[in-house]
Amino acid sequence: MNEPQYQERVKKRTLQEAQPELSLPESDVPLQNDKAVIEDTGSGIKTLLIALFTTVLAIIGFSLIDAYLYVTDLMASHPLLASLLAALLLAVALAIFALIRNEWKGLRAIGKYSNDLFSIEELKTKGDVATTRRALKHRGKLQTGSAFARGCYHAFEHSLREHHTNDEVLKIYQDMVLSPIERQAKSVLKRESATAGGISLISPNSFIQTLGILWISLRTLRRISLVFGIRPSISGNWRLLRIALENLAAGSLTDLLTDEIAAQLGGTLGDKLLANSVDAVAVASLNQRLGKALIRELSKH
């Protein structure tokens, strides 16, 4: 054989150490992202919110007075029954207020979404692999409040490899974090909407139904936020508040309307049940609307 000699284009050296076991990259570099522009909610929306808020207050007020008048009317003829009913109404109202308070506290305890994060779209178009991975790691830290999200992030981190491109990292993130969280949130929402419908079905009057809707709305927000591990930012809260108030108004108006129709039909137990069933469907749908808005809010970034 007369093989020519070739010049090697590799420099070789022997190291005085053993090959390490494989470990996943753990970088903790703080993000230096540009602040995202907080969406301008505008004065028009504020006016709308005030209008919705006052509408809801008015509905609650009217419902309360309606209940009060009913009890005082009853007091003249059946003082004992009226007293019992008043006490029961007060107890139910207090219990629901306590539940609302708990939900509110629970929701506030969840970490807030940070507006200074890059969106997935920004990471896709502008980011390189290193920035994307840092950004997603940071997101992961924000969402540690949710055991479900923690599990998703854990699986995601362990599935990433050095050779993955920016686009591939984001695809894996979509498949292993965003999609499962969204699926889980939708399943929670389904259950919450069914509960909302149930409350509407059994609520004896508009006042209790309004409070019930308020409670279940907050519970839906808290439970979905718990799946994500974060609650919406200020701008997101404004949007959700608007939807929640719209729902309350729409739910209460539906209730008043169906009660009126039931009364026109004759006011039998069957009519009342039919009216409440219509209410239940409406309330469940409205709850779905609120939950979907929250999911959209927490998923879109």
Partner: peptide, 23 residues
């Protein structure tokens, strides 16, 4: 033995590889 090799740029086409060199 645990070794470290430092590669010069890998050619991106056949013509970019010097006929007298190899990796």
């Amino acid at each position: 033995d645990y070794e470290e090799w430092e590669f010069e740029s890998i050619p991106d086409r056949l013509k970019a590889l010097d006929p007298e060199q190899n990796y």
